[in-house]
Amino acid sequence: MTGTVAPLRRASTRPVGARRRVVVLVVGVAAVAVSIVISLSFGSRPVSADQVVLGISTWLRGETPADIGALAVQSRIPRTVLALLAGAALALSGALMQAITRNPLADPGILGVNTGAALAVVIGIAFLGVSSAFGYLGLALIGAFVTAFFVYFVGSVGAGGTTPIKLALAGAATTAALSSLVAAILLPRQAVMDEFRYWQIGNVGRADWDTMSVIVPVLLIGTVIALLCASALNALALGDDVAVGLGVHVGRIRIVAAVAGVSLCAAVTAVAGPIGFVGLMVPHAVRLAAGSDQRWLLPLSALGGAVLLTLADTIGRVLGSPGEVEAGIITAFLGAPVLIAIARRTRMRAL
């Protein structure tokens, strides 16, 4: 893949010390803990700190509390866990895509990967009768990989090969087309619209332990592969020729990292629908705070993504009370200005 690397390397022109990165790591871990408490405490029914403690303690013991507030806390635990897992996976996926394409606009949502996964799942539900978590995961993986290949193919056609702007345009066009197909499948089926609604927008409100147990192995494997690729991705940021001189198999590392990134995105989409902009916003914020070293960027992005999506889900529950606003709407509302700012500040060769 080709394209200017300046936007992703600019943050590394000022060295970032290890102490600062450790501070960012500690802040990230603390933010995750705070976001968990906020997610369990707020929603359509606010609860007290004592009820949060009671709800968690009784859940750990496998008991059903008599207190309504504690019971509400227990009901929020699965969706909080899913928000943490999904946010971490989407941010990590976005960081990988930005690294392997050297494209500051790379994101599972912008490149159409999660919409492709959602379309495959919707087709499976509507026409094939798929209803199991394993079926959703398999279809999401197929849809995500087919879409990723298609977007890269379209973005590489023409003079200059693959450039950031061509990839972004190919992804945006593909996302629009696939979203229209999803809507065309869902709209005539009003009786099951609520069942399918979150495949258009993205939401973690349908979390359950059985479904999460299906995707956790994929998330773990994808995360391990991503972290193992960190050093090679650092070399890749210096340019293909330099990376080859440092002993990196450029083609192989791009394929392995891409498989990890697409798999992370597909697994999340299989259970939560297409949630956009998490993979775009978080890596850029982490890069500003901790530099571009992928050995730090990848794990810190996972922490940041977990915090962002958990808080987005909580905000949606509070704003939409007694119902809820889908987390995908909140992340889109937050992410659109970020996308505009990145596009304005980024110098892209195709422009």
Rank of each mutant, 00 (worst) to 15 (best):
T4G: 14
A6F: 13
R9P: 02
R9S: 15
A11P: 00
A11F: 13
T13I: 07
R14S: 13
V16A: 06
V16M: 10
G17D: 10
R21P: 10
L25S: 07
V26S: 03
A30Q: 11
A31R: 02
A33W: 00
A33N: 02
S41N: 04
S41E: 06
L54S: 12
G55N: 03
G55R: 02
G55K: 08
I56M: 13
T58C: 01
W59D: 11
W59A: 15
G69L: 09
A70Y: 05
V73A: 07
R76Q: 03
P78R: 06
P78H: 03
V81C: 05
A83D: 04
A88F: 06
A89S: 13
L90G: 05
L92F: 10
I100E: 06
D107P: 04
D107N: 05
I110N: 01
L111W: 05
G112T: 10
T115I: 13
G116R: 01
L119V: 01
V122D: 05
G124C: 11
I125T: 11
F127S: 12
L128Q: 08
L128H: 08
V130N: 08
S131P: 09
S131G: 14
S132E: 00
S132P: 03
Y136T: 01
Y136S: 09
L137R: 04
L141A: 08
F145H: 13
F145Q: 12
V146Q: 02
V151I: 11
Y152N: 12
Y152A: 12
V154I: 15
S156L: 02
V157H: 14
G161P: 06
T162D: 08
I165Y: 10
K166W: 07
L167N: 04
G171A: 05
A172G: 08
A173W: 06
T174A: 09
A177G: 13
A183T: 15
A184E: 06
I185K: 01
L186A: 13
L186I: 15
Q190F: 10
Y198V: 09
G202L: 04
R206Q: 13
A207E: 09
D208T: 02
V218T: 14
V218M: 11
L219I: 14
L219M: 12
G222H: 04
T223S: 15
T223C: 11
A226G: 06
L227M: 11
L228C: 12
L233G: 05
N234R: 10
A235C: 15
V242L: 09
V256T: 12
A258S: 15
A260C: 10
C265K: 08
V268Y: 11
V271I: 12
A272W: 03
F277V: 03
R287Y: 02
L288W: 14
A289T: 07
A290P: 08
W296L: 04
L298A: 02
P299T: 06
L300S: 01
L300Y: 02
L303N: 01
G305E: 02
A306I: 04
L309A: 01
T310V: 01
A312K: 07
D313Y: 02
T314D: 03
G320T: 03
P322L: 05
G323L: 13
E326K: 11
G328Y: 00
T331I: 09
A332L: 05
A332G: 10
A332V: 08
G335E: 08
A336K: 00
P337F: 01
A341F: 11
A343G: 00
R344A: 09
A350E: 15
L351C: 03
L351H: 15
